[in-house]
């Protein structure tokens, strides 16, 4: 773990260099972890029961609580996009929890958070055009056409502030932990960093995941209404 994002391998594909950085590699690890969990859950849920027991109970509780959360913040008619946000929630949460093991969180790279925020932005525009059609375009020119640049900047600031908030919060935990590991002698590096990891990775990770998802849901809802 360090301040810089290290480059692990360079792959040549038809003369184009593709850099496999730490972020991409750890994203693959987290994707593999989530896919394996999904496959295990799918196999265990093969005999689906009406009255849930064991693992089915746990999965149903997780999905149901996220569904209630999405209905509360999105409204009834937009809940069909909540699976995407459940995926975002699972990815950001597991990436910040994986950094407990000393790997650099993929969300501490601006590319990852900007990709997630850009996806929210695209969904926001798509939902706006789908639910309000011409009214959505007209809302950029309200209350008067002279406000168009202001409204456009306001819309473009949403993905930027969303991505910078998550990136900054994840990065400063990484920086403080790197400084701690670099500046202290070896005998205080056992045990005490666990508290710092618990604070910066677990507490802030869970809080920032929640904030990222709920702000995305609010942006999508405000585009549709």
């Amino acid at each position: 773990m360090g301040l810089n994002i290290d480059n692990l391998w360079v792959i040549n594909v038809a003369g184009i260099e593709i850099w496999i950085t730490e972020t991409i590699f750890y994203t693959w690890i987290i994707m593999l972890f989530l896919i394996v969990i999904a496959i295990i859950v799918r196999i265990m849920l093969r005999n689906f029961k009406e009255v849930p027991t064991g693992i089915q109970n746990l999965i149903e509780a997780a999905v149901e609580s996220f569904d209630n959360f999405a209905i509360n913040s999105l409204g009834e008619k937009l809940t069909y996009i909540s699976p995407w946000f459940f995926m975002v929630f699972a990815f950001i949460l597991s990436s910040s929890l994986f950094s407990v093991f000393g790997i650099r969180a993929p969300t501490a790279d601006f590319a990852t958070t900007f990709a997630l925020a850009l996806a929210t932005f695209v969904i926001m525009i798509f939902i706006g055009f789908k639910h309000r059609k011409g009214d959505y375009l007209k809302s950029f020119f309200s209350p008067h056409p002279i406000f168009f640049p202001l409204n456009l900047i306001g819309e473009l600031a949403k993905p930027i502030s969303l991505s910078f908030r998550l990136f900054g919060n994840m990065l400063y935990g990484t920086i403080i932990l790197t400084l701690y590991y670099a500046l202290t002698p070896l005998f205080v590096q056992i045990g005490i960093p666990a508290l710092l990891h618990a604070f910066f990775d677990v507490v802030f990770g869970v809080l920032q995941t929640y904030i990222f998802v709920i702000l995305s849901l609010m942006y999508v809802r405000s585009a549709a209404e």
Binding site: R165, G168, L171
Partner: peptide, 27 residues
């Protein structure tokens, strides 16, 4: 409580921008 967290996050944005400007200037 949930509204409070949203308000805290929105207020935190300016602090994060300052942090990012400092990091960009240093590194």
């Amino acid at each position: 409580r949930s509204i409070m967290f949203i308000g805290l996050a929105l207020g935190e944005t300016s602090g994060i921008y300052g942090l990012l400007i400092a990091i960009i200037m240093l590194f």
